[in-house]
């Protein structure tokens, strides 16, 4: 209903309305209000049109837009040509004739059996490999295989005599001098100052002290003697 009223206000004055339309309008608004709105709208429309006629879009807008359109067209044509080139590029790619011949020759040489299998023997082709398609080979696999090998380490004892000049002039090590504490009842070593003992020998750490295979045997070493209670 309101749409109809709006349309009537915009298009006709009250006097131009039919009887039916007038009755409809009067059921909604007064004649005066209708005429006021109608006149206002028609006048506003006229004003807007006269104002709009004074404005004109600059020519530069059209020129700039056309330039943009051409740029877009160029861009699209470049993209299309790139696509076409991408599709046929592989086949359109040209190489010199000698390169093509060399490539074919190389493929031929490399595909011969001599290059594929260096142990290729022409006579082997005549040998009968099998009469049936499938060959069953029985093979016993043991879980454990014991291999006994003779010891590869030979221990050789060499005894050499020492000169008197080689004698190390030092006090014999005692429990007190090595700072070793021994449990008197059980005979176990309670405390051992390894630092002092290492300073006497060639050991740099307790690990070396235990595992060295280059020094003297424990029974010959002074500290070892103490530890083993030989002295």
């Amino acid at each position: 209903m309101k749409t109809k009223l709006t349309e009537l206000i915009e298009r006709k004055s009250f006097n131009e309305l039919t009887k039916e339309e007038q009755n409809f309008v009067l059921s909604e608004i007064s004649e005066q209000e209708f005429n006021e709105k109608h006149e206002l709208i028609s006048q506003v429309k006229g004003e807007l049109k006269s104002e709009a006629s004074q404005l004109k879009a600059k020519d530069s807008i059209h020129l700039n837009a056309l330039a943009a359109l051409r740029e877009k067209k160029d861009r699209e044509s470049v993209e299309e040509s790139d696509k076409e080139k991408g599709g046929a590029g592989f086949f359109a790619f040209k190489i010199p004739l000698w390169t093509a011949i060399a490539a074919v020759f190389m493929i031929f040489i490399l595909s011969t059996p001599i290059f594929i299998n260096s142990e290729f023997d022409q006579n082997k082709n005549d040998e009968l490999l099998a009469l049936v398609d499938t060959v069953y080979v029985d093979k016993i696999i043991r879980d454990t295989i014991e291999i006994t090998q003779p010891a590869d380490t030979v221990v050789k004892m060499i005894y050499t005599s020492r000169d008197a000049s080689d004698e190390i002039t030092e006090l014999p090590a005692t429990i007190e001098s090595l700072d070793i504490k021994v449990n008197e009842t059980s005979g176990e070593i309670i405390q051992y100052n390894s630092q002092s003992s290492m300073s006497m020998g060639s050991y740099t750490s307790t690990f070396d002290f235990k595992s060295s295979d280059t020094g003297e045997s424990l029974s010959e070493d002074k500290i070892g003697r103490v530890l083993l209670r030989i002295e």
């Binding site: 807007l48 709009a52 404005l55 059209h62 051409r70 699209e76």
Partner: peptide
């Protein structure tokens, strides 16, 4: 990519759009 089509559209609408923006 028809430029003349754009020109016709421009002639039809440029001033209308301009006035709409103006207001």
């Amino acid at each position: 990519g028809d430029e003349s089509a754009f020109t016709i559209l421009y002639e039809r609408y440029s001033n209308r759009i301009l006035y709409f923006m103006f207001k």
